[in-house]
Write a protein that binds this DNA or RNA. Structure first.
Lengths: 326, 326
DNA sequence: CGGTCCAGGACAGAAGCTGACCTGGACAGG
DNA sequence: CCTGTCCAGGTCAGCTTCTGTCCTGGACCG
């Protein structure tokens, strides 16, 4: 009998009875008691929690949590697990294989009725064609960030320049220090909300551009996120100047009621001018793109500023007017 | 990693029921493919029935019905569960509460070490401000669709007109019949891939506009999705005329290399004209919006057609030229 | 026909395993 | 208090096993 199959036998023996004295296991498995002790250690290292009681009538016992009791989900929970773990790969974290395996493990300890329900729910997650794949974040980075948040440990990390990947260019990595507060995901991208110790201000870091350094720094006293609500703070930041800072921002007046513009304003800011007119401030990567983005409302409009936007309007006017130029 | 734990990992990988090519397993387990073959042999000797298929797209697969040892959650699986179930509400299905409860149930059966790991991973999912909330799909609808797919039962359902919600107007609901094949999610929206029995063609239905009727129809023999690959089929359909049909489609020539346009083309189609020029066909909700969308590339361009697009170009030219008009 | 995949033999070197022996600590009962 | 039973863990020699690197061969697909 090989070592591995002996370990499996040991596992199943431990499941059948509460207490197994070492010498008994030794004779049952036909090995020395020293080997039994080593086997138990091995199982423990693999994550099985085996408790041992000393003295007479002692022995080894498999703890709950290893011998997973049947997971008693209700129907909704089953669906949630099935859906969540099948769609997980689209979340941007590098969880595809782990999620599939977790689903298998969960499936295994389910009562038959729920298992059938689980099996029925087959879901395919697809990315729309042409949609760029969002950068995936390694699991261990997520875990590291989460634990520093929990431990309130100052985070030291290298941060890549905007629109560079972590691995791209070692030169582009800048060391930073921050007090991490929240791990946030949105649209398949991951962000860390933290207090930047070098800038003395709140920042939103892209996790895919971040590489934690060990060891962590000293403990810190948590601060209150501005507004008290992470959700609101992050939403506001997406409009703001940190992560999705647009290099070009400008304002137009649109001949359209504010309520018609609002749903399509994206991260822009809409203010009503009068009943039929509103002001929209938005951003883009170039002045031309910004000017073009206002055109999609398909109504008359005026560029307010800055001057770059006004001249971009002029350029666009010519572009739309004269084929091929300027 | 020891041999034994590698065998358990292998088991848990095989359990996910995909076909696993030997070389892939080898890299996952960080051993040579020869060792993988030996591991598979070992598992077979222990009684697991593992099928192997030769040739390209072959691989190893664990036969169902094998009695597995009590598999444990490992670290990665824990993270996957934590992340997936916390982010689940963003998936568009109505799972928020169920997912939270499922997480609690799973938490309870975890060994302490993993439970701590689970607890550390606190994730916030936020929707960007201004991002319209995707319609949520009730769980029971998902379950109904999934089970009709599994049972190969013809689906009878009411289908709401485009951009209407199910509850909006009972008059707008049209009865339909389809052979359901796949449940697909993308960007927080849910779709059903099915063969429409009234139109004798493949269709992609928005689940949020669909209301199943009971009882289901007769069984059907499954067809092969065009191309054989659901993923590719759905991606193609998103460009096509079914779900995301743009009422206005047109073509322009952009003075920009195709490779620079492709990443930003969205669901449009890019064809290279020459080294510095390409042709882009895209769609939008209005001719004005379509014309404006081409402007974001910030390069000279020409409207090719249809005539509506050409006149939209003219209108835009005037809009960008003259403040406030026309 | 070449590419991809599984199947399995041979072999040297490395790694792991086992049993024997040891000390030590926890526990229960006479 | 002392003894017997049990777990915990260190060490060490000897041996089994495992692994990677060869190799050949067959099945399958386009």
């Amino acid at each position: 009998m090989t070592t591995t199959s002996r370990l499996l036998t040991l596992l199943s023996l431990l499941q059948t009875r509460r207490d197994w004295p070492g010498p008994l296991l030794a004779s049952r498995l036909d090995v020395s008691d020293r080997t039994v002790r080593r086997d138990v250690d091995r199982l423990r290292e693999m994550g099985y929690s085996i408790r041992a009681t000393m003295g007479p009538d002692g022995g080894y016992r498999l703890d709950v949590g290893s011998e997973l009791p049947p997971l008693l989900f209700d129907d909704d929970q089953t669906v949630a697990v099935a859906v969540a773990l099948q769609v997980a790969p689209a979340l941007g974290a590098d969880v595809e294989e782990a999620a599939a395996r977790a689903l298998g493990t969960i499936r295994q300890v389910m009562p038959a009725r729920l298992r059938h329900r689980l099996d029925a729910l087959e879901v395919t997650a697809v990315r729309r064609a042409g949609d760029p794949a969002p950068p995936t974040v390694p699991l261990d980075v997520l875990v590291t960030l989460a634990s520093t948040i929990r431990d309130r440990a100052t985070l030291r990390f290298d941060y890549a320049a905007r629109h560079a990947a972590v691995g791209d260019d070692p030169q582009a990595l800048a060391p930073r220090r921050a007090e991490p507060h929240h791990l946030v995901t949105s649209h398949g991208r991951w962000y860390l909300v933290g207090w930047d110790l070098d800038h003395d201000d709140w920042r939103l870091y892209s996790v895919d551009r971040l590489r934690p350094r060990l060891p962590h720094g000293p403990r810190f006293a948590p601060r209150t996120v501005p507004g008290g609500d992470v959700d609101a703070f992050v939403s506001a930041r997406f409009k703001g100047s940190d992560v999705d800072a647009w290099p070009c921002r400008g304002t137009v007046v649109l001949h359209l009621p504010a309520r018609d513009v609002l749903p399509f304003a994206g991260d822009g800011t809409v203010t009503a001018v009068d009943e039929h007119t509103c002001r929209l401030e938005a951003g883009a990567w170039s002045w031309g793109a910004l000017a073009a983005s206002f055109g999609r409302f398909d109504v008359p409009m005026e560029a307010v500023g800055p001057p770059e936007l006004v001249s971009a309007f002029a350029t666009l006017a010519e572009r739309y007017a004269s084929p091929g130029g300027p």
